[in-house]
Design a protein around this nucleic acid. Structure first.
Length: 213
DNA sequence: GACCAGGCACATC
DNA sequence: GATGTGCATGGT
């Protein structure tokens, strides 16, 4: 973290907001499901969808593996884009069941870089979803870049808004020690900042980063 | 009634 | 390679 803007920003955010205890989910599988469902979607809607799966006793790799897309789409409806997400969820779960016997524990044993490549090859899983699964579900030291992260960094002239995902991620990986807990908190803190201050219409007045730049 | 939300694949130029 | 579009719900 060390002598870098990104280290200082983390310290400021942590001091201002404290630990976020983010991305709760009772199991790694639930977290992975949430990672797919939350694509461009408010988390509250994702929770409704996951609750529907729980109530139907369907939050299980093998159950969803066998379920029709139509039934799955109906259950996850509140999360929006339900037809597409049903397909994406099925694609991920096919990968989980067919390559890792439905076990997130087994998936976790795969080497990180290789697993990331395999996840990206699943249709419907892009860089953010892959990295969210790696970090939040499997505990791998991979920094997650999302719309909030891009907005915060670009507004502070650390990178331009049109730079690709990989550039943003590289920035964090080079500047910070690979600490899972810290990566987890940092991303969550950026989201918190994005929701409260670094909104589409910025509210810079009371922003904890205001004095830094 | 706009605008927004932990994206991604695909079409078209 | 960059730029545009479809996907869809629920909260503010």
């Amino acid at each position: 973290m060390e002598n870098h803007k990104l280290g200082k920003i983390y310290a400021k955010l942590f001091n201002a907001f404290g630990p976020q205890h983010w991305w709760p989910g009772e199991t790694p599988f639930e977290v992975a499901v949430g990672a797919v469902l939350t694509q461009n979607t408010n988390w509250g809607n994702v929770e409704r969808a996951i609750n529907n799966l729980k109530k139907a006793r369907a939050l299980d790799p093998f159950k969803i593996y066998r379920m029709s897309n139509e039934r799955l789409a109906k259950l996850i409806k509140p999360s929006g884009y339900y037809n597409i997400k049903a397909e994406r969820l099925k694609a991920f779960i096919r990968f989980l069941v067919e390559d890792y016997q439905g076990s997130m524990e087994r998936m976790k044993k795969e080497e990180t870089a290789l697993l990331r490549e395999k996840l990206l090859a699943v249709k419907g899983i892009g860089p953010e979803t892959a990295d969210s699964i790696l970090l939040y579900a499997l505990g791998k030291p991979v920094f997650v870049i999302d719309a909030y992260t891009k907005r915060v960094l670009s507004r502070h002239d650390i990178l331009r808004a049109d730079e690709p995902y990989s550039k943003y991620q590289e920035k964090f990986h080079k500047a910070l020690i690979k600490d899972i807990k810290m990566f987890n908190e940092y991303h969550a803190l950026l989201v918190k900042l994005g929701k409260d201050y670094c909104k589409p219409k910025p509210v810079c007045g009371e922003c904890p980063l205001r004095a830094d730049f």
